[in-house]
Amino acid sequence: MDSLNPDHPPLIETAATPRVWKFWGTALWGLFIFVAMFVGQIGAVIALAALRGLPIDLASLQLVGREPQTLALSVIMGLPATLLAVWLAIRIKKASFVDYLALHWPSWKQLLFGAVGLILIVLLWETMSRALGREATPGFMTDLLKSGRDKGAALLLLAAFAVAAPMSEEVLARGFLYRGWSASFLRSSGAILLSSLVWTVVHLQYDMYFLAEVFTIGLWFGYMRYRAGSLWLTIALHALNNLTAVVLTMWLGG
C-alpha cells in the first residue's frame, strides 16, 4: 500500500487558512479603509476646485469645501472609495464579500426592536440636552443643513447624510472592523466596544458631549449587529437616525 511506502508518504490535510483578518490585520486594513474614505472625500473637493479653475491650495480647498453642495458630494464620493478598499481586503482573504460583512436581510422584528431602542436612546439624550440647556444638534450642522436647504442642495445633503454616510461608516465599523475583531481575542463584546470607539473618533468634529452620544448609539448598533447578524440592519438604523435629524433640522427647525 502507498501509505506504507516511504517513497509515497500519505497526504496530510492541513487546516484551511482562516478567511478573516484577526486583530492586527483588521486594525491595519481598517486604517487603510479610513484613509481611502478620506481620499475619496477630499478628491471630490479637489475636483470641484479644479473645475472652477481655482489653484489647488489650502485656501481654495477650504473655500470650496465650506459649500453645502461640495460637502455633500464629498461624503457621497467617500462611499465608493470605502467599498473598493473593503472589497480589496476581503478579496485578499478569498472570502465572500456578502458573508464577511454579514450583508443579510434582518427580520421585521429585528428592525422594529432596533428602531425602538434607537428612539429611546435618542430621546434620552434629547431630554438630557434640554435639561442642560444644550442644543440637540451641533450648531455647525444646523447652519450647514439650513444653508443647504436655502441654496437648493437639500436632496443632495439628504443623499449624503442619510444614504452615503451610513453605508460608508457601517461597512467600516460594524462591517469590517466588527467582523475581524469579533473573531480575535476581543470576541463580540470587545469588538462592539472598540468598533464603537473607532466610529466615535470618526466624528471628532463634535464636542465631548455629542461624542458621548455618538458612542452610546454606536454601542447599540454594535449590539444589534451581534444580535441580528445583519449589517443591513445597522445601515438601516443609522440611515433612520440621520434621516430624522436632517429632516427635523432642515424643515422643522429641530
Results as ranks from 00 to 15, higher is better:
residue 164 A to T: 02
residue 102 A to K: 13
residue 194 L to I: 10
residue 103 L to C: 04
residue 20 V to K: 12
residue 145 L to H: 02
residue 190 G to A: 06
residue 86 V to A: 15
residue 5 N to G: 06
residue 171 V to Y: 10
residue 127 T to Y: 08
residue 223 Y to L: 11
residue 237 L to N: 05
residue 229 G to T: 04
residue 95 A to Y: 09
residue 145 L to S: 03
residue 65 G to F: 02
residue 70 T to V: 15
residue 227 R to Q: 09
residue 82 T to L: 13
residue 83 L to A: 15
residue 148 G to H: 04
residue 189 S to M: 09
residue 53 G to R: 07
residue 133 G to C: 04
residue 252 L to Q: 07
residue 226 Y to N: 07
residue 61 L to F: 08
residue 237 L to T: 02
residue 170 E to Q: 11
residue 248 L to F: 12
residue 211 L to P: 00
residue 96 S to H: 10
residue 101 L to E: 09
residue 118 L to E: 06
residue 227 R to T: 00
residue 143 D to W: 03
residue 101 L to N: 11
residue 202 V to K: 02
residue 235 I to R: 08
residue 223 Y to Q: 05
residue 107 S to Y: 02
residue 9 P to H: 11
residue 146 K to V: 06
residue 94 K to H: 15
residue 246 V to H: 10
residue 199 W to E: 00
residue 134 R to Y: 07
residue 94 K to F: 08
residue 61 L to K: 06
residue 206 Y to P: 00
residue 4 L to P: 00
residue 187 R to A: 14
residue 166 P to H: 06
residue 122 V to E: 08
residue 136 A to Y: 00
residue 92 I to F: 12
residue 122 V to T: 06
residue 40 G to K: 03
residue 71 L to V: 05
residue 198 V to G: 03
residue 32 F to I: 10
residue 11 L to V: 13
residue 54 L to K: 04
residue 81 A to C: 12
residue 4 L to T: 14
